[in-house]
Amino acid sequence: MKLNHLTMAALAALAASTIFLGATPAFAGTCPTGRDAANALADAPTAPSNVTDTVIGSVDLAKEIGVENRDLRMRRLVVQPGGVVPLHSHAGRPALIIVVSGAITEYRSSCAVGIDHAAGEISSESDGISHWWRNNGSVPAELLSADVKARD
């Protein structure tokens, strides 16, 4: 696969953040101790706001490992200050997200409070969780997301 300049820059940023933090990025995304609770996510936003979401690569999993109608894809999201990635579910759609730069807060169906994610941290999204994200900071948050997505 041929990589364009944006893809190469995103992958370089991912590698640089990994090297900067040591050999392995830090896993994050766990609810603070004592704050695990069902969260209906009432009033969660349902439309994106001030976010760009660009697919930078994908693999047809049927050709690779015999999983029909699913792609493994890599996306680059840039969430501007105040921007939102709207409420969505990860039922049947596992993902790993690394925060490349900036910081972002996740609001998850299994946690009573927001979960802050800093640059270099990875969030695991699976087990059917629902959640949404907001950039509560003053600088853009850049994320790389690898997920398994059903074809439309």
Rank of each mutant, 00 (worst) to 15 (best):
N4V: 05
L6S: 06
L6A: 14
M8C: 07
A10P: 00
A12T: 07
S17F: 00
S17T: 15
S17D: 09
S17M: 14
T18G: 05
F20D: 15
P25E: 09
A26L: 14
F27N: 02
F27Y: 08
G29E: 01
C31F: 04
C31H: 04
C31A: 02
P32F: 11
T33P: 06
A40I: 04
P45S: 07
P45R: 03
V51M: 15
T52Q: 09
D53E: 02
D53R: 09
V55L: 15
G57L: 03
S58E: 07
S58H: 09
S58G: 08
E64D: 03
I65K: 01
E68M: 06
R70M: 10
D71V: 12
L72I: 10
R73Q: 15
M74I: 06
R75E: 04
R76M: 13
L77D: 06
P81S: 03
G83M: 12
G83C: 13
V84W: 06
L87N: 00
H88Y: 11
H90N: 10
A91R: 13
R93P: 00
R93C: 04
A95Q: 00
I97S: 13
I97N: 00
I97A: 13
S101F: 02
A103R: 08
T105S: 15
E106C: 09
S109G: 10
S109R: 01
S110Q: 12
C111Q: 10
I115N: 02
S126V: 09
G128D: 13
G128Q: 09
G128I: 12
S130F: 06
H131S: 11
W132H: 11
N135V: 03
N136R: 11
P140Y: 01
L143Y: 03
K149W: 08
K149E: 12
D152P: 13
D152Q: 11
